[in-house]
Nucleic acid binder design. Sequence first.
DNA 1: GTTTAGATCAACT
DNA 2: GTTGATCTAAACG
Length: 197
Amino acid sequence: MLTRARELLGCHLVGHGATVMITEVEAYDGVNDPASHAFTRTPRSEIMYGPPMRLYVYRLHGHHCANVVTGPTESASAVLIRAGRIVDGVDTARERRLSARDDDALARGPGNLTQALGITIEDLGTDLRDPSPVTLRPAGAAIDAARILSGPRVGVRRAAEQPWRFWLADEPSVSAYRRHPRAGEANSSSSTSSSNS
DNA sequence: GTTTAGATCAACT
DNA sequence: GTTGATCTAAACG
């Protein structure tokens, strides 16, 4: 599972006229991962239980995040594409990401990456192997294992201690680690029904 | 029960 | 100012 995530580093993700080289990913281990949307099997997460090499897109803060279903079919494993470096279609990416000041920030962060590639909820379930607006291509050159770093995932509350984030050293497009404010807290559902004073 | 839309807020640039 | 596998609430089946 973690190997799949590492293998995605350096691959080219083509989306609606723009191409990025993946530089940062996070692995999500489906049924065994509380942070995964597939932790509970629902019709919505069914896509991740399906065949690999498909796209799972979900909405977050009004933006979108893109995942690659990696399989095997029953484990619902998926890899979140967190960041990438634009290698083609820079003009298109810039038009979509007007707020980005530097080219390195065009696809820095999952929401920005999907926006730069024009990936929306309509691309959900796209087969990345078929010729489609969104395609995943193998890495042009093998990535040196020494360049791959790992660490805890960004912004997750559940299972925040799992070092399932991988990124390429020497890449300015990789975002910095940010811990979730409430990560590790006890799940105290007991609402302290704080009546107004 | 699940899904979608909007709010929230700390860390980043 | 921007971003975001969070959080809550409302709509749906």
